[in-house]
Simulated assay, not measured.
Amino acid sequence: MGKSPLSRAVGVLKEDPRVARMVPWLAAGLMRCLFRLLRVVHVDRAYPERCWARGERIIIAFWHGRLLMMPFAYPGTPSALLISQHRDGEYLSRIATRFGFEVVRGSATRGGMRAVKQMIRAIRERLNLAIAPDGPKGPRAKVKSGVIEMARLTGAPIVPVSFSASRRRLLKSWDAFLVPVPFSRAVYIWGEPMYVPRTATKDEVAQYQEALEARLNLLTMKADNYFR
């Protein structure tokens, strides 16, 4: 079955370089406006702060569905963001650079080894890493091994974080993408750092995956229920 006229029109627009320049600028502006309209509180932000006080760089992990407000979780912190090499990832990359992120392009299926090398270099250059371990296409809320291996190779602790709002909309996407309603109360909740020893075996890596998944799910549940 061929594409609909609307789908073809959207595809043409995505290829237009003027649209490629305008959309990230507009999206970043709308995100900033939305964030300013929220009443935000932070819970347990001391966890990443203690790591930084010890001179550590961290791997910030969050579910893909909570991505929208993550640029504001700890603004001003030098970080590199992992974004897939999918075509739509180009728009996300341009948006991320407007928030001061360095961008690493790749995933478990495309550009994987190149992305790993870039992320290791980012840690060595004193950048934090920001990763959605269930991205870019799911399954939702399932940690892939890549983030654990990155922690094992670099020695950087994984610090999980989740975001939610008192009033929110969940899109009908694979990741149940959360959009906070303007003028809502919102919360970032951080979790304890997770250190993965360099000597971790394959079975132990799988155990760390399960542990991180459980922590992220717990933080997300706490965030969703925080204002009740």
Rank of each mutant, 00 (worst) to 15 (best):
E210Y: 08
Y74V: 03
C51G: 11
F35T: 04
Y74N: 06
H64D: 11
R39C: 12
G2M: 00
I148Q: 02
A46K: 14
A96E: 01
P139K: 01
E210S: 15
A223M: 06
E204I: 04
E56F: 05
P180H: 03
P193D: 03
R198C: 08
T199I: 07
P160A: 09
V143A: 07
R124K: 15
D175W: 10
R110Y: 02
M70G: 03
V12M: 15
L82K: 07
A61E: 06
Y47I: 12
G2S: 10
F101V: 06
F72I: 09
K14L: 15
S7M: 14
E49K: 13
D203R: 12
R152I: 04
D44K: 08
L26K: 13
L212F: 13
P71C: 00
A211L: 10
D224R: 00
R39T: 11
R39S: 15
I83E: 11
A200H: 12
Q85F: 11
P193Q: 05
A223Q: 04
G135Q: 07
Y91Q: 05
P24Q: 05
W25C: 09
L92I: 03
Y47G: 08
A96W: 08
L26P: 00
G89T: 00
K202M: 12
R215K: 15
A115Q: 08
R66H: 14
R98M: 05
A27Q: 08
F183H: 09
A115L: 02
F227S: 10
K142W: 10
F99V: 09
M70E: 09
M22H: 02
W174K: 09
P180Q: 05
V104L: 00
K144W: 04
R57E: 09
P157E: 08
S166K: 03
M150N: 10
K222N: 12
S4T: 15
V179N: 13
P71A: 00
F163C: 09
Y195N: 08
T109F: 12
A96P: 13
E149R: 15
T201K: 01
R215V: 12
I120W: 11
R126V: 02
E125Y: 07
L170I: 01
W190H: 08
M113L: 15
S84G: 09
K222C: 03
N225F: 11
R54L: 14
V19R: 07
K137L: 05
A156N: 01
K222T: 05
G11A: 14
S164F: 00
S166M: 01
G29S: 06
S7Q: 15
W190T: 06
T154K: 07
A20I: 05
R87S: 13
T199L: 01
K144H: 08
E125C: 09
S162T: 06
Y195I: 06
Q85K: 14
L67N: 05
V19Q: 11
D203L: 13
F163Y: 12
K144I: 02
P78G: 04
S107M: 08
F99L: 10
L34R: 04
A122S: 15
S107Q: 12
E210L: 14
R140D: 04
L92V: 00
R98I: 00
D88Q: 02
S107E: 03
A211C: 06
P136D: 03
G106W: 07
E204L: 06
D16T: 10
V205M: 11
T154G: 09
I60W: 08
G65K: 06
L6G: 02
F99Y: 02
L6P: 02
A122F: 13
K3E: 11
A151N: 04
Y195F: 14
E56I: 06
K3C: 03
S7K: 14
